[in-house]
Structure formats: C-alpha cells, structure tokens
C-alpha cells in the first residue's frame, strides 16, 4: 500500500497527514477527517453531492485524489457555520424551503458559495449554469435558485 504525505488547509486549519494514494478526497474528508457533512452520491462526477471548494473553486471531491491536495486550501460545508453561526446562504436555504431530504444540500451550498465568492451578484442564468452539476431529486430547483439569488449582494431581483 502506497502512501504520500500531504500538507493542506481544511476549513482554515493547517494539517499534515499520510494518505493512501488510491484514496479519493471525498473518502479522506469523510473517513479520515471525519467531516461527514460532505456526501457521496454517485462517486463519479455526476451528482455534485460531494462538492467542496478547493483553492477557491468548486470541485467534485470524488474526482480528486487525496494525494493531490498537498499545498491546497479545502473548504467543506462545515466551514460555513465555522464561527458558530449559520452562513447567510444556509439561512436563505431554510427560509426558501430549498432543503427537503437534504442530501444534495451540502454540495449545493458549496457550489453556491464558490459562485458568490467569485461573482457576488449572479444572474439567474449564471446560477443555473453553476449548479447544473448538482442534482436534487426533491425540490425542483426553484427554491434553491431563489435562495441563492436572495443571498447575493443585490438580494432578490
């Protein structure tokens, strides 16, 4: 079994770990770091449930090897309420009923967070394009889009 050493920042904290080379970032986050907010749906890039922010960009953690995160900055859904208070996005998701079973929510939130970080005032079309890779079988997306729009700098248009 091969391992490599990786030093990375997870939700603001710097860590160094020995990781198996065949382990995905998703498995590493859930089973080694025990941050189980990030979900596994398909395991192959189709559903977006595993989305985390890596170096400022939304990525599928199931499509990244843990070995690849040396030097990287990773944010998972746990970072949103890191200060003890819910993020505006989380509050708006609740307000708009954008959560039903909740399985897609962590991934959806992280995609939305990455979008708002890079574009604080996205149009509806830009929101749709950003979350096209996040599947939700419950809500029908309308509430999710509304929640993201409402969280943006300009509020709801």
């Amino acid at each position: 079994m091969n391992t490599v050493s990786v030093t990375f920042t997870i939700n603001g904290e710097k860590e160094t770990r020995q990781v198996r080379t065949d382990m995905t970032l998703l498995k590493f986050i859930r089973e080694t770091l025990l941050l189980t907010g990030t979900k596994e749906g398909c395991g192959e890039g189709e559903c977006g449930a595993c989305t985390v922010i890596m170096n400022g960009k939304a990525v599928h953690s199931c499509m990244v090897l843990a070995a690849e995160i040396d030097g990287a900055d990773i944010q998972t859904v746990e970072s949103l309420a890191g200060s003890g208070e819910l993020d505006k996005l989380q509050l708006k998701f609740m307000e708009h009923g954008a959560v039903q079973c909740g399985f897609c929510t962590p991934g959806m939130l992280m995609t939305a967070k990455a979008l708002l970080n890079s574009n604080p005032n996205p149009t509806k079309a830009q929101i749709k394009e950003a979350i096209a890779g996040n599947l939700c079988r419950c809500t029908g997306y309308k509430q999710i889009i509304a929640a993201i729009q409402d969280s943006s700098r300009g509020g709801r248009k």
Binding site: G48, V59, V64, I131, G133
Partner: peptide, 8 residues
C-alpha cells in the same frame, strides 16, 4: 460536463 468538471 458541469462547472465542477470544467474547474478540474
């Protein structure tokens, strides 16, 4: 693909 795929 999707935004996440294109980011990688």
């Amino acid at each position: 693909g999707s935004w996440q795929i294109r980011n990688r």
